[in-house]
Design a protein around this nucleic acid. Structure first.
Lengths: 222, 222, 222, 222
DNA sequence: AATGAATGAGTGTTCATTCAT
DNA sequence: CATGAATGAACACTCATTCAT
């Protein structure tokens, strides 16, 4: 009684599989405009109307370049992901003492992770992680996780050089990052801290983080 | 796009207007039903229809007890907030060695914070923190923050007793909690880890956390 | 990359299953209005907007009473189906000579089957029979087929009484109906005949039909 | 709602406007591709996108060769119309006894008329006969009607030869065709019979049709 | 106090068609 | 001649909310 459609065939392919929306420049323009709207409103509250208006295109054009709202959103996130933590590993190349390098790394990453734009993006991703867990996972792996991987490599080198004594460098890296944003990131994420932390606040957190880290992982002097 | 204004503090008038027609028992019934739907769908995706159906009431009745969907959601969260971390401070009353107490506390809080229900709630709160920052702030203060406060008190006592040497106990408490969920909570939040961590995983994180903590904050033996 | 939604649960039932739209009077009003629009435009070309406007209700109200456009259409057809050939069997109760009864039956059914409203309905049903074959089947069974069944009964009686000699009364009934609308129904269906056939045209077709029928199925006089 | 006006006869201007930029081979290619899509989806459900994709051309090119979707459809139908009943008249040239010839003719035409492709085409034509009655009329005239005309000619010859006695040969031809598909075509059209009738079913219908026909129209032996 | 019935404004998506190149 | 790119209008459908009873 309800739905009697047989549709066994569906032979006619229903659309060109979006290899069509070729012009990469326009695609970028759309993504740029859409990003602004998404970041301002979140995924659900950003209407396709708003997005198109914000990107200066018609709704139909949007659907030439992207299959649907979700795909557009994913494309934006995938694009943004890597950019966020881009230069973060550079400071690890420094030849300074490990404690100093760690300090600078901690400050850098805490600044990024607590910045307005990153927090906003994280909120949106987390908010739809229930519905799009793969996207969230990729965002995490490609973003925060990448910084952690870089740090792990740094720690490995220092361990090899005898400057640090760490059993599980991967865990240690995660610990250091977590410590660097202690009492900074969570309040940001939940909206308790309306503005990014001041350099002084960051410095305090990171200084304490380095202290703990060095205390725990400095090589035992014979 | 819908509501971004940070609520101009009309608490009194609001309460009066709606507490009026209110059998508190029915109010609880509605909140219980609505909670299930919100937790399952998220804020935006939970339709008022679903909520009413889930609570066994008519839409009109809902609007007798709550001004709108947002207010209902806030009421639920305010109600739930304290329950989540309820028994967490109990283990701090133990007379065991600080390291053992900390270990048990870390395991307890990591288990809670990474559980399905808590992660789900956090995702929803974080997802709308942009639109309802006050709610997010209160959720954070009343939830995770309360555990941190309890731990701070514990540390204060131990410092007074000379069993620990900590300059900033509040910071130290935050550090310990953060360390206990290292590599556990974030993957959960972002959807990378689909299931709560195993007891073994938790134990490993917490053990390392306690080690760092003791190393850094154990009193210098004269 | 495309769709990563897991949705294993869907526990929250998404809507009341339309036992809701109870008021049968309003339901009838909607169906009456919608029928007019459907008959005028066909299924695809009748927009839900038009339908609502034609029925004097809002779109939302429509969806309280019917799950979707298809269900509304089906309800209308199911409702109409039986009405179309309602009184057609009555003439078969007559005590007149079989040839006379057949003639009157033929005229009646040809008039109905070639009428504007029936042809219009048939066109629409046939047009979507590919997509909704079950509906088409039920329409046919409950409509034209019912007349055929009634006629079969009549023929059975006459055979029993020795007034006709028919091996397969069911086939004979179908033949008679088909013959009665020869050169009348098909042109109507395909749009070649813009108006229903005149009584004279019908009479001619039916007269010839009766002649053939009697010639073939009259009992062999000993 | 879209187009109900019965086309104010602008045939000349239209032809000129479009026959202009027209490589007839490409036109055929387009029609071939579009036919497949139309037959599979129906008129309304076949999107111009699908059609162009199916024909391997761009949308703009389509509109060079055809004024719009309707005109394309009409061109296809006009083209197909005659092909459907192409060889049907051949069997009428046989020198066998009239009854045998009629039987073979009946089987041939019933097979064609109940075939998947013909039923599908008929459904589509009938479905839009309300909107494009002229097309339906031409389809009927050029298709089924042509078979009937051929049969009329055959009957005329047999009457002239004294092998049959028929007052209205045109009516008789229509009657025979109708009888040959009794209980076969209508169920197909309405979707009650999902598959074409078996040869046995067809034979039964046609055999009975010939019997009635011969009984009614055989010359009275003196 | 409680509700069944109703809605206007909005959702994401697709349509047939056109125009600059 | 042919097209890639673009669009406004329309699509079926859902939303949070209100009001007469």
């Amino acid at each position: 009684m309800t739905n009697q459609t047989p549709q066994p065939e569906e032979t006619v392919e229903r659309t060109v599989r979006h290899a069509a929306g070729a012009d990469p420049q326009k695609r970028q323009q759309i993504m740029a405009g859409a990003k602004r709207v998404f970041m301002e409103c979140g995924f659900d509250a950003a209407s396709v109307n708003d997005i198109c208006h914000g990107a200066g295109i018609s709704k139909s054009t949007l659907y030439v370049y992207f299959e649907n709202k979700e795909e557009l959103f994913e494309a934006i996130i995938e694009n943004e992901r890597d950019r966020l933590f881009e230069g973060v590993a550079d400071v690890l190349a420094s030849e300074s003492a490990p404690a100093d390098v760690l300090h600078q790394f901690g400050v850098t990453i805490a600044s990024i992770i607590c910045s307005d734009s990153v927090v906003r993006a994280q909120r949106i991703i987390i908010g739809i992680a229930e519905r799009m867990p793969a996207l969230g996972a990729r965002f995490y792996s490609g973003g925060a996780m990448r910084a952690q991987t870089a740090l792990t490599g740094f720690l490995d080198r220092k361990v090899a050089m005898g400057e640090l004594a760490i059993a599980d460098t991967s865990l240690a890296a995660a610990q250091f990052i977590e410590l660097s944003t202690v009492a900074l990131w969570k309040p940001r994420l939940f909206g308790k801290a309306a503005a990014p932390p001041s350099p002084e606040q960051i410095d305090a957190s990171v200084t304490s983080a380095v202290a703990l880290f060095v205390c725990a992982y400095a090589p035992k002097s014979a």
